[in-house]
Structures are given as structure tokens and as C-alpha cells.
């Protein structure tokens, strides 16, 4: 028994560092995750249930935040899953007042559903097109990042969370965009000229260095060819963080 618990701790620690290891660890413990979900919902979850997705995510969160000082992993994960599912059910409960577009418009059985009556002002084909464009851009971005030895997971891990740090990174990106030479240097040498950026923006080089991988992703986005993604983030970059 102790060796089993040690083994799982080793696996958890491996999953912390490697996304593939995390995915396979989660896959191996799917019966446990299903069981925890079933305990909460009172029925066997299907693969398409949001509750199961939330539970899997909670399990992943547990992997990331677990330390051997926190006791047995499975108990820790179980608590995390339950807490997440409760949060989710509260969140869903708040949405109860929202009318579904799939509900019938009248009391008669044969009446049309709301979505058929209400005029759809959206452009589903445009959205699909946009999604496809974003998909292609992301595939291109991932490929170009792999040349730099960076993955999106790395960048997410490295992404600033504090407002002040995010502001520092934004200043760095703004400066790089205003000085085309910076991005050109970055693409040519595959190195971000942090000294020049730090000097020009007055931000701490150490702070920028700590978020180097994240900066690489954003600079790459602004290096050209990723217009849809740029458009998604450009408003905030122009106007400052709305946090």
C-alpha cells in the first residue's frame, strides 16, 4: 500500500511537468473521475456531460496544485472535484432564469420552437469561416513556436497573472510593435532583445525575462500572418487591460 501511494505521487509529480504525462495519467484515472462525478450527480455520467468535463478539469487542477505535504492525492483530488462540481452547479443555477431557444413558442404541441421564430441576426457561415481562420492561424502559430522550442502550454504556464506584470509585458509588446526592428531581430535571431526593450520601456529586465516564453508568443502573433488573433487582442492592447 505505501509503495502504491508513493507510485501515484511520483506519477502526479511527473504529470505536473509534462502535459502528455498529465493526459495519460488522467486517462488512467478516468474510472475514479467518473465515480466521483456519479457520486455527485447520482447517475453515471456520459462522455458528453459537462459535469464529467468539469470533474476532469478539477482532477487536472488537483495534479497541478498537489504537494506531498497535502496528504493522499486521491483524497485531495476527490475534494477538489466535489468542490468544483458544487461551484458549477451553483453557476448553472444562476442561469435558470434564462429561456432556452429550444423550448416551444406556444402551449400547443405542434408549435414552433423559439429559435425558429426569432430572427437570427447572426451570420453562422461567417462565424464558421472565422473559426476556421483562427484554427489555421493557431496551427501556424503552434508550428512556428515549435521552432523556438515553445508550446502554447509553456506560454500559458508562463503567462503573467498579476496586473502589474501584465502591464509590463504589454508595454514591451507595444514598444516592439512601434519598432519594427525589434520584431525583425526576434524573427532572425530567435531571441527577444530584452535589454533594448527593458531600457526603452523602463521595465525591469528580470520581470520581462521571467515571461520570456509568453512574450515570444505575443511577439510572434504581431510579426504578421495572424490577423484574426491580432484582432481579438488588439482592442485591449490599445486601450489597456480591462480588469
Amino acid at each position: 500500500m505505501p509503495s502504491d501511494s508513493h507510485e501515484i505521487v511520483t506519477q502526479v509529480y511527473a504529470a505536473k511537468k509534462d502535459n502528455k504525462a498529465a493526459d495519460s495519467f488522467i486517462e488512467a484515472y478516468m474510472p475514479f473521475i467518473r465515480s466521483e462525478t456519479a457520486k455527485f450527480t447520482g447517475r453515471q455520467p456520459s462522455q458528453s456531460d459537462d459535469e464529467l468535463s468539469i470533474a476532469m478539469f478539477a482532477f487536472y487542477e488537483a495534479i497541478r496544485s498537489y504537494s506531498r505535504f497535502k496528504g493522499a492525492f486521491l483524497k485531495y483530488a476527490s475534494v477538489n472535484i466535489k468542490r468544483r462540481l458544487i461551484d458549477n452547479s451553483r453557476r448553472e443555477r444562476r442561469k435558470l432564469g434564462v429561456v432556452s431557444l429550444d423550448q416551444p413558442a406556444g402551449d400547443n404541441e405542434g408549435s414552433s420552437v423559439l429559435s425558429e421564430i426569432i430572427e437570427d441576426k447572426g451570420r453562422p457561415y461567417d462565424e464558421l469561416e472565422e473559426r476556421e481562420a483562427v484554427h489555421q492561424e493557431l496551427a501556424e502559430l503552434t508550428e512556428r513556436l515549435s521552432v523556438l522550442g515553445i508550446t502554447l502550454s509553456d506560454a500559458a504556464e508562463n503567462s503573467p497573472h498579476q496586473k502589474r506584470t501584465l502591464e509590463a509585458c504589454r508595454k514591451a509588446v507595444d514598444f516592439a510593435r512601434s519598432e519594427p526592428g525589434i520584431i525583425e531581430d526576434f524573427l532572425r535571431t530567435r531571441r527577444i532583445p530584452l535589454s533594448a526593450i527593458a531600457q526603452a520601456t523602463g521595465e525591469s529586465r528580470k520581470t520581462l525575462e521571467r515571461h520570456r516564453r509568453y512574450l515570444a508568443v505575443v511577439l510572434l502573433i504581431f510579426s504578421g500572418g495572424f490577423e484574426t488573433i491580432q484582432e481579438h487582442i488588439i482592442q485591449t492592447l490599445k486601450g489597456g487591460a480591462e480588469r
Binding site: D23, D50, M56, H135, L138, A139, L152, L166, L237
Partner: peptide, 28 residues
Amino acid sequence: AECHPAYAILLDENAELVYAANLHYSVG
């Protein structure tokens, strides 16, 4: 931006990359 069985990586409007539950999302 990226999908895994248990989570997805999302790019928000602050240009921040965040982890979120993968509620049957697809890339893009």
C-alpha cells in the same frame, strides 16, 4: 488555442493565456 482531454488553453482579450475546463471545445 489548444485542447486537451481535461482542459483547454484559451487566449483572452488581454492577450493572456489561461487554462479552462474543456467543455467540448474545439480549437479556434
